[in-house]
Each structure stands twice: as C-alpha cells, then as structure tokens.
Design a protein around this nucleic acid. Structure first.
Length: 428
RNA sequence: GUGCCUAUGGUUUAAUGGUAGAACGGUGGGUUGUGGUCCCGCUAGCCUGGGUUCGAUUCCCAGUAGGCACCCCA
C-alpha cells in the first residue's frame, strides 16, 4: 500500500479530535438551545449547489475565486456552499407561497471558501444561520436582534465583553443622497461606501483623499464626516436634521427603544460605521463586536435582505437574518477565558476495568446490565491491575469505576467507586 | 493576490558551523486489590529541496506550512 506522506489536514481545514469536538459541540448546543427556545425550526440544505447561484449574488470573491467548484457526471458545475443565504432562499422560495407566515428558520452547517487561512478564518468553517422570512415589520427586526444578543449571552460572557452595533442601509442611502453621492457612477459610489466602511481604520487624510478621488465635493465630504462622527441618534437628529424623516432613522430608533425596554440597552448602540459587504442588504444592518483588546473584531453580523429572492425568479419576500461562525465564537470564548477549566464533556462515565480475565463473561454481563440501566460504560479490554485501572480512570476523567474482581465475584457483589470522593458503594 | 515574521520529539521549548538537552505527554516499573503526589527506565525530533562549507539543524536562496497585516468577507 502506498504510504500517505502527510499527517496534516488539507490546508485551511481542521481535524476535530474529541477534545476539540467537545468545544464545538458546546458552542453548537448553546446555539441550538437558544434557537429552539425562540421557536425557530432547524433545516439543512445540500452541501453543494449549482455554481451559478453564488456567481450571481455572493460578491466578487466569495462567488468568484474563493468558490470551490467541480463538475458532476453530467457536466453540471457545482460548488461547495460558501454561505447559506442563497441556499435557504432557494429552499424557501419553493415553499413560500404555500407556507403560513412568518417562517423562522435556523441551521448549523459547514462551508468552504478558498481563502488564505488566518486567525479566525479557515477554508472550512461552520456557521449558525438564523432567518425570518415573510415579515417586514419592526417586530421581526427586534426578534432577530434579541436572538442575536441571547445567543451570545447563552455563553455567560463577562459584563461589557461585547456589543451590538446597529445601522441601516436606508439611512446610509439618505446620507449619500444628502452628500450628492447617489449621483456618482456606481463604481465611485461603491468606493465611497467602502471608505465609510473603513472609516476607523483610515487616517483623516486618507479618507479625504479617497472621497475626493471618488468625485465628492468638500461640502459633501463634510456631511459624511458629520454623519460618521455622531455617537447616537439624538446627535444625528441635531447635526443632520434632514435625516429625521428617513425610514432607516425610524427603524433604528424603534429597534433601539424596544431593545432598551427589554433590558438590552447596555449592549446596543447606533454605529454609522456598520456597513457590511454583501450587496443584498437593503434595510437594517448590524454587527456584534467582541470588545476584548486581544480580539477586537466583528464576531458576526447580519441584516435585512428583502430583495434577494428575485434571483430565483420568485416574487420578492421580506427576509432578515444573520450568521455567527464557529471560529469567531471560539475566539470570543477563548479571549475571555470562558473555555478555561470547563468540563465540556459533562456526561458522567463509568469505567469497568477487566480485573481478571477469567471473569470476562461475568464482567460483560454486568456491563450489559449497567448500560441497560442507562449508564455510560467504558469497558476495559485487557486485563489490568487495579492500580492501573484507577490511574487510567483518573486520566480519562471518568466519574466512577466499577470494581469487579475475584473477591467481589465470590460474594456475588461488585463495587462502584466514586473517583471524586473515593467512597465505594457495594452493590449485590 | 501583496507585504512582514516564524518553522527542533505528539505538545511546549533550550543550545549549537562538528547532527541535539529539558519539561509535559505516552509507556513500563518501584507497588502481584485501590488512583491523583513522588522516584527510576523506555519512547520520540532538527519542514522539504538546492547553495556556501572539509562538515549545515545552525548561514544563504527557493518551496511548503503556520502567524500577523492588507485585500476580501462574516
């Protein structure tokens, strides 16, 4: 047989050893628990889709060079999914008209993007996707936002460790109108939006330069600067009163006030710099930030995308959703020390060592009995001295050890030793 | 795709132009029926290719892999 030379996983992928698996499972279990608590329904779509649905709408990179593509036997071009939204919209558009509205769906699935791997970003990654279809009401926005917050809170993070930043594409369009940027060519307009997106990262002079190059006048730039520097809606209304009648302004205001009434006020703020890259967002947009200095990044984000369904030739339906990733969630937990000393495998396990080979059959019968009674039993396979058995149980973190050797067999008994207290219980 | 940094047992690492030492882990024993501490033995390593050199794990170049930033994205 040919030797396989590398023990390495393919680039950008990760083996989940049982230790690693336990962490991922913890994250997924928290996510699933919260979604079910919200009455959301779980679904799954195939791991591949026709490549064209990503080319159409996923953006230049995700739907382009980062797409992992191959041909099936019929020569059809398929891609491993790089995101869930096109798939779920495809699925929902099949059943939408016949379904009672609204639909509240979630899924936990893996994805592939041919990216350069780095911290918080792998080629294979997992995401939770949560969406509400069929309601354009503020109540749907608010439910999505509280769900996003509760998902993070489920990990019991320390106070002040994260926050949700809100903005609206409509408000943004309003500002661009005010600044006259809407009249620019789409390329120049995109550059303006990109500049807003990078506002915090760029220097004042770089911002000025980019906006001038895009074709904006000084007065227009002043308006954008004013917009980007406001800290809350009150200030925005004062500085740019023209925006008070903007639909996005009302959306944000309504959502913020509801979240505040529901007890989330410390976690939410208006943030003009939240733009988000995907083109299909057309209403409320938001991002959840990790506030840890070592991991200061957007954990996840989402928004409203009412116009996406039309790529399947369907009538549009309202939709809002978001998608946290496993890697960013893990980094959040790690940076705040929420993984330290945590017993993820809370399942209580029994160890049943084979203390005497002559008692193999009797041991197996006892193990059957214990398993039938609902115990999780790890059975020893080779004869083992009792001291070695206890040492093994210790290393594996087993809760109990069943002691069944010659002495016990003679008395028709066995002992269950609690590894924490050291106490033994005699069972006949 | 671009730039910078890094690469030594399974893991974390030390030293060195004359091929490497430790800790943790794994394993066996001290202890033939009672673990976590302790003591001893064993196990296992210089990313790949080329160059300089008498000799390269060490210096140089390239590749590969990883990290960070950009780009992009969530």
């Amino acid at each position: 047989m040919a030797k396989i030379l590398s023990k390495q996983e393919p680039k950008g992928t990760l083996d989940w050893t049982p230790e690693e698996f336990a962490i991922r499972k913890y994250i997924f279990d928290c996510w699933r628990r919260v979604c079910l608590r919200y009455g959301f329904e779980e679904y799954l779509t195939p791991i591949v889709e026709s490549a064209e649905i990503y080319r159409a709408k996923s953006g230049e990179d995700v739907g382009g060079k980062e797409l992992v593509t191959f041909s099936d036997l019929g020569g059809r071009e398929l891609s491993i999914r790089p995101e869930m939204t096109p798939s779920v919209v495809r699925m929902v558009s099949k059943v939408y008209t016949a379904s009672p509205k609204p639909l509240k769906y979630f899924s936990i699935a893996n994805f592939m993007r041919n990216e350069k791997p780095q911290r918080g970003r792998n080629r294979e990654f997992w995401q939770l996707n949560c969406d509400i279809f069929g309601s354009a009401k503020a109540s749907a926005d608010i439910e999505i936002l509280t769900l996003a917050l509760d998902l993070v809170l489920e990990f019991k993070p320390p106070k002040n460790s994260f926050s949700l930043h809100l903005n609206s594409r409509q408000l943004l369009d309003g500002v661009l109108d005010l600044a006259g940027a809407s009249k620019l060519k789409s390329e120049a307009k995109a550059e303006v939006v990109r500049t807003l997106d990078k506002w915090q990262k760029l220097s004042a002079s770089a911002i000025q330069e980019r906006l001038l190059a895009a074709g904006l006048k000084e007065e227009a730039i002043a308006i954008l600067k004013k917009f980007m520097s406001v800290r809350d809606l009150l200030e925005l209304a004062k500085e740019l009163p023209e925006l008070k009648n903007n639909l996005g302004f009302a959306q944000i205001q309504e959502a913020m006030s509801a979240l505040s009434d529901l007890g989330y006020s410390a976690l939410v703020e208006f943030d003009p710099a939240v733009i988000r890259g995907f083109d299909y967002y057309d209403g409320l947009v938001f991002e959840v930030f990790d506030k840890h200095p070592d991991n200061n990044r957007a954990m996840f984000g989402g928004g409203r995308y009412n116009g996406l369904a039309e790529i399947f030739g369907e009538k549009n339906f309202p939709a809002i959703g978001f998608a946290p990733g496993d890697e960013t969630a893990r980094l959040f937990l790690e940076s705040w020390g929420m993984l330290k000393g945590k017993q993820f495998d809370a399942q209580e396990k029994y160890y049943f060592p084979l203390l005497n080979h002559d008692l193999y059959l009797e041991s197996q019968q006892l193990i059957q009995k214990l398993r039938a009674a609902g115990r999780n039993v790890f059975a020893g396979l080779e004869e083992q001295k009792i001291s070695k058995a206890l040492e093994f149980a210790n290393k594996k973190g087993f809760a109990k050890v069943v002691i069944f050797g010659e002495d016990e067999h003679k008395k028709h008994k066995y002992k269950i030793k609690d590894m924490k207290t050291g106490k033994e219980e005699v069972v006949s």
